[in-house]
Amino acid sequence: MSLKVRDLRVYYRTLAGDVKALDGADFELADGEITGLVGESGSGKSTLGKSLIKLDGRMRYVSGTVELDGAELPVRDSARMNDFRFREVSLIPQYAMSAMNPTRKVGRMIADLLESRGERFRALRPELVRRLELVGLGEQVLGRYPIELSGGMKQRTVMVLSTLLDPSLLIADEVTSALDVSNQRAVAETLAGFRDRGFVKSMIFVTHDVALVNQIADTITVMYAGRLAEKGPAKTVVNSPRHPYTRMLISALPEVGVSHGERRLSGIPGSPPALLDPPAGCRFRDRCPLAFDKCEQEPPFAEVEPDHSVACWKA
């Protein structure tokens, strides 16, 4: 197991009180595993991704432990966490297009960053160039300013930079949301390629896009209202989901080769509960067609078969 997350809770501080965006996440990631973390907006998937590398100013760590390769990750202590960032845990941000300082040449910025982390840019440069060429960029990118690069080039540069120190865990936070469909596929495949070449050991691929995740991920993790709903092998989750939310989510997607002329795709009626003061018990209860009395109690995120966990009493 490269990553072990136990009961991780991270809330957002607001004037009205704590918003329980991540309320008890329990999961593991195997060596070499890519998990697609899916869920609707506000389900806590980005919060989970961010809390594994850097809590932003509004986030408050409440409880939980994170273990990476047998060592505890001090997610609550930003200063101690600094040693792990980039080397052990790295991030490809949602805003890859604007992630680089506009007034610094790309190479200079990378050199500044590496030197400030105690790495020798000179020593790493050949590897950096090799990896840039791997994603179809030349060495000349290093002599350019970010505005001289296209959006896709910036994205690939950031992908190479983020994984340059071969981190154990890579968090890709909605990296495809700003791209067109063909680029989405290319980016996802490049990231899977990074895993195959050993640039990263395991990866959390945060996205809305179940179809894309199905193509590159080994497992799919579904979040709902701040909690994990289901995690299992990608095929299993897509073809025979056990959680009612996952089932409805999958059935809301169009399928290749199926005409939707006569049949409207079904959505999920209702909306997720407010996370400022969420109801007790299962959070999907109000929208769930299978809900019964026991759903007043919170269902545990339990393994229903090997490597397949579901948080539902009826699973």
Binding site: K54, S90, L91, P93, Y95, N101, L113
Partner: peptide, 15 residues
């Protein structure tokens, strides 16, 4: 964004 990215990669405050 670029400040956030640098911080996420553990760049020191100084940089």
């Amino acid at each position: 964004d670029y400040s956030n990215y640098l911080e996420a990669l553990g760049a020191p405050r100084r940089l």
